[in-house]
Nucleic acid binder design. Sequence first.
DNA 1: GGGAATTTTTAGCGATCACTAAATAAGAGC
DNA 2: GCTCTTATTTAGTGATCGCTAAAAATTCCC
Lengths: 175, 175
Amino acid sequence: MFHARGYDAVGVADLTAALDIKPPSLYAAYGSKLGLFERALQSYVETDFLPVGEILATDADPARALTNLFVAAARHYTRNPERRGCMITEAMRADDAEAAAVASAFGERGSKIIHDYIVAHASPEAVDRILDYVLVNLRGLSSFACLGHTAEKLVGCSEVAGGALKAEFAASAAG
Amino acid sequence: MFHARGYDAVGVADLTAALDIKPPSLYAAYGSKLGLFERALQSYVETDFLPVGEILATDADPARALTNLFVAAARHYTRNPERRGCMITEAMRADDAEAAAVASAFGERGSKIIHDYIVAHASPEAVDRILDYVLVNLRGLSSFACLGHTAEKLVGCSEVAGGALKAEFAASAAG
DNA sequence: GGGAATTTTTAGCGATCACTAAATAAGAGC
DNA sequence: GCTCTTATTTAGTGATCGCTAAAAATTCCC
């Protein structure tokens, strides 16, 4: 439910109804709504998170590998109609500051994998802007998936996005 | 306030306190919280919306013009610490479905301007994917601005994003 | 089976949500 | 100044929010 509707739009009443328990049981088990949310994020990371490392290993060419990441994200974020977008990325924008902070901490892990990959393949002064570009694009893809756009559409613009990476890594190799 | 915190996180109590009136006055003037929100969006469009048409007219080269749009967005979305990101783009993701729908209607206007510009400069089969790419990027930029990222960072990845446009419009011109 | 520990529920809590009927105050016209 | 109209406030409404003290039910161990 948190994935489908975000932290703020899901109330304890919704959660207890879905779990078929009463509020004190939820609090006994998870401590708070936020505690349950953290558990849900953890579970998402373990079971449904985009396998970034694996995808980046699919091609020796960094531009192609990162484009594959975009395409995989586009497909991943649209594959389940009940759970569109990236739960973590979307939760980073929760109205509740604590929920947003928790999600950001989880998000840092994925970003680090991508960062390390880019460090290993680009010239030092290009690393930050490539990383930012990749993260901004993933953010946009997740959001568009949530808004209901099709996989086809998102894959299409992911391929376009790959063009920028080609140029950047070519410049890094030449520099 | 709606810009800074979104529709859902701002309550009628916050609004009446800021306007120094009591709730029935707000309802007398605007009909509902949503009514006030629409007015705020309208005001935003008239006073603070990215001047898309003007920016696209800054360069005869479409790739450069659209890159200028990204750069302008990056600067625009970060210029006021109290009002980060694009109010309309962010409101499209409101928890309240009516608020989100109203914001989407406003968003269509900006998208149409960009769409028409791309139709005039790209080959027909590339139009949709370029447009989607541009919109996904703008979405990501707005979101990152809201998350507190610097103008510098966002301008940097906007320039990277422009690389993809160069490739696309070169292909369109060749095709 | 009985007692203690654990789990779950009942029955709320104080706060906030968007909104409103009725009363009061302010403004306009004579 | 008086009366009528308009604007604003007072004093709530019913619903939902995240959460909890106390009571009841269930489980575990002897």
